[in-house]
Simulated assay, not measured.
Amino acid sequence: MAPRDTTDSPRLRIVEAAVGLLESGGPDAVSTRAVAAAAGMQPPAIYRHFGDKDGLLEAVAEHGYELFLESKRAQFDDTPEDPVAELRRAWDLVVEFGVSRPGLFAVMTRAAGSSSQDAHRAGLEILHGRVRRLAAAGWLRVGEELAAQIIQATGQGAVVTWHSTPADRRDPALLTVLRESMVAAVTRAEPAVPAAESGPAAAARALRAALPDDADVLTEAEQHLLREWLTRLAAQS
């Protein structure tokens, strides 16, 4: 992989300015004029370094992969004792990155198919190495290529679902369940969450789901109160 730009590189200044605009104002904020102004340069500098806006976004994606790879390399051993635990931690790291940096993650995901993304290819090599360690240890349930695709798809899907869900309805348990579904699909390891639940909370969820919207036996106020009680019971673990 090519060496990263130094901190005083005009190219890196432009990329970091674009990342800042992307994360503060979303994709619409990343115009060539705005990026140039944020980087303290003139718009022609962007075309000189990147060709066009698409070239700039490819560089932003590459920068994002480099940042992500740095965090992965700092947190993982080359020869982990437990490859399944390593898989869980790596998946969590991807999702945490995507949840905390949605704009950058979206640009990285869109650019993932580009063969020119050196950092992306390096990330894939790490993923495939992780899958090979699972296979060598006898943990793998499916073929290596399919396993890698499942790991990628569930991680990206978790991030997209999280951000597409209204903030007041986001439940961190979703991420745990998706991760363990991935582990169950890819490996022979037991899920780290219970497969089924019984007791008052489960019963309350079932009753709440079964209640008709217009139960004639109850007044509107009684229906509202019953649903509130069931919601409280259903939230108990």
Rank of each mutant, 00 (worst) to 15 (best):
D213Q: 13
R33F: 07
A111C: 10
T219P: 08
T7W: 06
I14H: 02
L21I: 10
A204S: 07
E125C: 05
L233H: 05
T32F: 01
A29P: 12
A209F: 07
V142G: 01
A106V: 07
A234L: 07
G98H: 06
L211A: 06
L178G: 02
I150Q: 08
S71P: 04
G25I: 13
A221V: 15
V99Q: 03
H63D: 12
P200H: 05
L230D: 00
T176V: 13
A195V: 14
A90I: 03
G103S: 06
P10M: 05
R169I: 05
S24E: 15
L21N: 01
T187C: 04
L12K: 13
K72H: 14
V35R: 00
F50Q: 01
L174A: 05
A184C: 07
T6D: 08
G157K: 11
A203Y: 03
P191M: 08
L175A: 01
G129M: 03
A195C: 09
R133S: 02
A209I: 10
R121Y: 09
A45F: 04
P166K: 08
S24D: 15
K72W: 08
V142R: 02
A202F: 10
I150E: 09
V19I: 12
A17H: 02
A192R: 15
A74Y: 11
P3K: 12
R133C: 00
M1D: 13
R101W: 07
D216I: 13
V217C: 02
Q117M: 15
T165L: 00
D77I: 05
H163W: 14
M108F: 06
H120G: 15
E197W: 14
E23D: 10
E58P: 02
I151K: 01
S24K: 13
A185G: 15
A167T: 15
L104N: 00
F97Y: 11
R188E: 12
I126G: 04
A90T: 14
G138M: 09
A112V: 13
P172F: 02
L12H: 08
L67E: 13
A37S: 09
I150S: 04
A204Q: 10
V95Y: 01
S198V: 15
A147F: 02
G155H: 07
G113H: 10
H63A: 07
A209K: 14
L211E: 11
S31R: 15
L175V: 12
V186H: 01
A206P: 00
G123I: 11
L93V: 07
V35A: 03
T7F: 02
L233M: 10
E228D: 15
